[in-house]
């Protein structure tokens, strides 16, 4: 029993990895040409941007918060980079760091509002989303195509791998981000404080941890990830457009949740999030290979998974709570 309980935490993660393998195996059996390294790598290539945002989102979710602005901030980054590159003719070497700073700043302001004025994260980031989308349109209503040579070059560059396969620069950036996130989450005081806040903000305060600073930094980090996503996405799409990445925030949340990060905070796995993204990708690929099913099935399937995982997490939580009830009723008595 005890063993089972200790594994409950990882249950979501195991199920996700297992599910991913199953889905990939099913695809391989059913469709010719599915079982290849390149199909697997394409999952990464097509979802590199989602991996980066989802990692930022995972950090926010671990603290028990939420960031609905990510999709809009990505769109804003694309739009602003396109504008600066094409209309202002700024050097890409200046644009890229500038975009990262802008994303971080955007996150910082939201984090500051949330922490200092005890505003609900969900409302503040909603406002952030409106703001970022609106700013996109302030820059331009129409699509701006990026023709900058460096962006073009990066976009077309293929890093060759054995067995005639390749990946894009975006994948490299995503994987580096993943490694950095793993280090940050598991080997730094900042990362551990993030988990502690999600476990119990009250306890974290009593243990003398820098709660306020960490919470603001988490939103800043998410903003930074959105900025980075914006850059990777503009490599991928080579354009800026106000309607880019609508609903990306939901995909990112779904990736984190399916990867074993409950929305109640305190628990979260960066690797899980990677698989959360890959599952969405593999579903998409399956539907593509199948040919007759339409793309909206992806959405329904993802929502179904999301639902199952949320209910699963709720069940795990209530199991834990039933053990805590004893404590609480006794606590109430005194």
């Amino acid at each position: 029993m005890k063993k089972l309980q200790s594994n409950l935490k990882y249950l979501g993660l195991f199920i996700t990895i297992f599910l991913f393998s199953i889905l990939f195996a099913v695809g391989s059996v059913m469709y010719d040409g599915f079982f290849s390294l390149q199909v697997l790598l394409n999952l990464l290539i097509d979802n590199a941007f989602l991996i980066i945002t989802s990692i930022g989102m995972t950090f926010v979710l671990i603290t028990g918060g939420i960031d609905l602005s990510v999709g809009a901030v990505v769109a804003l980054t694309c739009m602003l980079s396109a504008h600066l590159l094409e209309k202002v003719h700024m050097s890409p070497f200046l644009v890229i760091p500038l975009m990262l700073i802008m994303g971080s700043l955007f996150g910082f302001v939201m984090g500051y509002l949330i922490q200092s004025f005890k505003m609900q994260p969900f409302i503040v980031t909603l406002a952030g989303m409106f703001m970022a989308r609106g700013l996109c349109y302030v820059i331009s209503i129409d699509t701006i195509t990026i023709s900058d040579p460096l962006y073009q070059a990066i976009s077309q560059f293929r890093i060759p791998l054995p067995f005639d396969s390749f990946i894009s620069i975006g994948v490299v950036i995503a994987l580096v981000t993943l490694l950095a996130a793993l280090y940050l989450a598991n080997y730094t005081k900042f990362g551990r404080t993030v988990y502690a806040i999600g476990g119990s903000e009250q306890s974290a305060l009593l243990m003398g941890l820098p709660v306020a600073r960490t919470k603001i930094l988490v939103y800043t980090l998410s903003g930074f990830c959105s900025g980075l996503t914006g850059i990777v996405f503009s490599f991928y799409m080579l354009s800026g457009y106000g309607l880019h990445c609508i609903g990306l925030e939901m995909d990112a949340i779904a990736a984190a949740v399916i990867g074993g990060t409950p929305l109640t905070g305190g628990i979260g796995f960066m690797t899980g999030t990677l698989f959360g993204v890959l599952i969405q990708g593999v579903i998409q690929t399956l539907i593509m290979f199948q040919g007759t099913l339409s793309s909206w099935w992806t959405r329904i399937a993802v929502a179904f998974l999301l639902c199952v995982f949320i209910i699963l997490q709720r069940v795990i939580l209530s199991k834990k709570e039933s053990r805590k009830v004893l404590t609480n009723t006794a606590a109430k008595a005194s």
């Binding site: 551990r192 404080t193 988990y195 476990g199 119990s200 974290a204 243990m207 305190g266």
Partner: peptide, 25 residues
């Protein structure tokens, strides 16, 4: 108990004062 039940026992004892190696816990 004012601890974080989602963290490991060791971490609950030392969080905030973790022993460090250069650059990492």
């Amino acid at each position: 108990v004012n601890l974080c039940t989602n963290l490991s026992v060791a971490e609950n004892i030392f969080i905030g004062r973790e022993p460090m190696k250069p650059g990492r816990i």
